[in-house]
Computed example of a mutant assay.
Amino acid sequence: MVKITPFEVEQWMDRYEVTPGVLNIAETCCSSISIDDLVKLCEDPNIPPPLSTSTKLTYGAIQGSQALRERLSSLYSARVSSPLPTENILITPGAIAANFLVLYTLIGPEDHVICVHPTYQQLYDVPKSLGAEVSLWKLRKEKKYIPDIEDLKDLVKDNTKMIIINNPNNPTGATIPKSVLQSLVDFAKERDIIVLSDEVYRPLFHGISPIDSDFPPSIVSMGYAKTITTGSMSKAYSLAGIRLGWIASRDPSIIEAIATARDYTTISVSQLDDQVATYALSASVIHALLSRNIQLAKTNVALLERFVDRWSDVCSWIKPTGGTTVLVKFENEGKPVDDVQFCVDVIEKTKVMFLPASKCFGEEWKGYVRIGFVCETEVLKEALKQLSLYVRKNLI
């Protein structure tokens, strides 16, 4: 029997996001959009909307439609000399299924896995459930939550099979710079270690510019075949409801192995989901969609920054540069708050919902909460207004 550890983030969300009148600033997706919203973003009026009613609802293309995989291939082929073949991309029901399939296929009891921490619990607890030994590559506030390659050298073992990163990072909002990624790739290549990069928040970069020399490319664009990326339409593309993700790798044998394992979990992704994703990633839609979400992130992170600055006596952070989440530390009389009780008290008294970091990411994060700030701006404004009233009354 596989031992499953409770998925604390998901259980907390399930418990509290149904609270009547909740001001949800725990959500990790960019503010969700409808099909109508998506069509309005299209810059070419001649392109038909998604969801053709004449399509017969068979299983469809087992590994994902050719059109969808071509559009994803173009994203991973930009600024590289060798395009990523479409057959090196596998479509899955969300990134959570993509990550699970990668780990289920490639990791076993004799393996050692290194995973950045804090991050999405699935990335380190699924390898544990499969019998692997897992070492946590700790992110530190004094390093702005950027992983340190020197720390990695102390963790690697003879049986290290995989190194797992999350870029941009959930929950810190930190971005791993290109120079650090290159050092990681060189390190892994020298030892023949697979690198899995959960890039579900890519390309939502709001604190670093594409013209910056350290702007991070995807891990599969860095010249090492044994790299894998996972992504989805949920976070940066505001379409969590279509449940569509993917796996990409330069190594065809990795994709073939995962595709074989995938036969035991799902036959194909819904044709309807595939159609919507293909439309969203078209040249006529993707730029407007990402522009909308990056601007939303910039607007909202500025609001959150003003809140942190205003209440700097009781809260602190490292300003995020990518993704949708950030850790904020709250203190009371110079000591970290009990973040679990703090989160419960805040939602009961103000309807503002966020996550306790010590429960969801480990006891070393006592006093921290994770905030998802790329919600609708008006929701964030009202949440921060209510949170300010709470802080004035209870922490000052």
Rank of each mutant, 00 (worst) to 15 (best):
Y104G: 13
Y104C: 09
T105L: 12
T105W: 07
I107K: 05
I107M: 01
I107A: 08
G108V: 08
P109W: 08
P109C: 10
P109M: 08
P109Q: 07
P109V: 08
E110M: 13
E110T: 14
E110A: 14
D111T: 04
D111F: 09
H112R: 07
V113Y: 02
C115A: 14
V116P: 03
Y120C: 12
Q121S: 11
Q121R: 15
Q122A: 14
L123F: 08
Y124K: 07
Y124V: 07
D125S: 13
V126Y: 15
K128F: 11
L130K: 14
G131S: 08
E133L: 14
S135I: 03
S135P: 14
S135Q: 09
S135D: 07
W137M: 02
W137Q: 05
L139R: 01
L139W: 03
R140H: 11
R140Y: 10
R140W: 10
K143F: 15
K143G: 15
K144E: 07
K144V: 15
K144N: 14
Y145T: 07
I146M: 05
D148N: 10
I149S: 00
I149W: 09
I149D: 13
E150F: 13
E150W: 15
D154I: 14
D154L: 11
V156Q: 12
D158L: 12
D158Y: 15
N159R: 14
T160Q: 04
T160M: 00
K161S: 11
K161F: 05
M162P: 00
I163L: 12
I163R: 09
I163S: 03
I164P: 08
N167W: 05
P168S: 02
P168F: 06
N169G: 06
N170W: 12
P171K: 06
T172P: 04
T172W: 01
G173A: 06
G173W: 00
A174E: 08
A174V: 01
T175A: 04
T175C: 14
I176W: 09
P177L: 07
S179R: 15
V180T: 05
V180L: 06
V180A: 03
Q182K: 13
S183N: 09
S183V: 15
L184H: 04
F187G: 01
A188I: 01
K189D: 07
E190K: 08
E190L: 04
R191Q: 13
D192I: 09
D192C: 09
I193V: 11
I194C: 04
V195D: 01
L196H: 02
S197G: 13
D198I: 01
D198V: 07
E199C: 04
E199Q: 04
V200N: 07
Y201M: 10
Y201I: 13
Y201R: 11
R202A: 08
P203M: 03
L204A: 03
L204H: 00
F205Y: 12
H206R: 06
H206T: 02
G207W: 04
I208Q: 02
S209A: 12
I211V: 13
D212A: 03
S213W: 15
S213D: 12
D214S: 05
P216F: 01
P216D: 04
P217W: 05
S221L: 02
M222G: 05
G223M: 00
